[in-house]
């Protein structure tokens, strides 16, 4: 009897504590789109939950000085997508490159590189932290993703993720909590020069609180969605489909 009561009190306590911690936050910001099974999945939830709890006030990733910048900035994975359309756009210096923003936005829109360069830009000197173990510091310039979405009238209330596809055949997604972060930008400049091809010309995503593989290069499309189930195997990114963490904060 008394054991039953104390167990109930304990459960009640946990629930109370849980709702206290979640106040002002949506439940989804603590969970990846597809929770894996077993111990690995349980650890994913703990890792993302702990990170997001620590990040609940949206702290900025450290910003460094110009003198800290890594020269030359390393390039990794795809450095020149063989995609025919990409090669054609590159030869034309990306004058014909267009970024469609579709899905759960008020007014779907297609932006040119000049449209994006006309938006107010943020410049940040941050560390690119690759999940392999290396890190390099660079200065990135571009509009905040939130601001870019405003060009499409902003995300609708049902929006939960922003999905990016790229010219190197990649897709990746981030949730609205990450979209809302001031350092989440679409960069067209690295170290005060046009974004080099090896680093994702003409435009790449910067998500400074997550590992390198979330920071996709060679952006092709942006779609705002309430579920990532329609993409790939449904884990929210090619790397996550393979078995990497969708939440790449560690």
């Amino acid at each position: 009897m008394s054991r039953e009561i104390s167990r109930r009190a304990l459960l009640g306590g946990f629930t109370g504590l849980g709702s206290l911690l979640l106040t002002g936050c949506s439940r989804e910001m603590f969970l990846p789109p597809q929770v894996r099974g077993g111990l690995v999945g349980a650890a994913d939830v703990l890792t993302m939950g702990a990170n997001r709890f620590l990040q609940r006030d949206q702290p900025l990733a450290r910003e460094y000085q110009w003198s800290d910048i890594s020269h030359p900035f390393p390039t990794w994975a795809q450095t020149n997508p063989p995609d025919e359309e990409y090669q054609r756009l590159r030869r034309g210096n990306f004058a014909e490159w267009r970024l469609p923003i579709t899905g759960l936005v008020a007014r779907p829109v297609t932006l040119s590189l000049d449209d994006i360069k006309r938006l107010p830009a943020r410049t940040q000197i941050t560390a690119h932290v690759c999940e392999q173990g290396w890190s390099a510091i660079g200065e990135w310039t571009g509009p905040q993703l939130q601001r870019v979405l405003e060009e499409a009238g902003g995300a609708l209330p049902a929006a939960r993720y922003v999905v990016f596809t790229t010219y190197d055949g990649w897709y990746e997604s981030i949730d609205m909590f990450e979209v809302a972060h001031p350092q989440t930008i679409l960069a067209y400049r690295l170290n005060r020069e046009e974004l080099p091809m090896g680093n994702g010309a003409p435009l790449r995503l910067r998500v400074e609180r997550q590992c390198g593989y979330k920071n996709v290069k060679f952006l092709k499309t942006i779609e705002v969605v309430d579920s990532v189930a329609g993409y790939g195997r449904g884990a929210g990114g090619i790397s996550a489909d393979y078995g990497f963490h969708w939440f790449a904060g560690v």
């Binding site: 990170n51 560390a127 932290v129 173990g133």
Partner: peptide, 26 residues
């Protein structure tokens, strides 16, 4: 270990100073 995490060091940048950098921590 956690000083290598971009997510945790955003919330706790003192981890980077404590060890003098992410690579030193690694």
């Amino acid at each position: 270990g956690i000083a290598q995490s971009p997510g945790i060091t955003a919330a706790a940048p003192w981890l980077l100073d404590m060890f003098g950098g992410r690579q030193t921590a690694r």
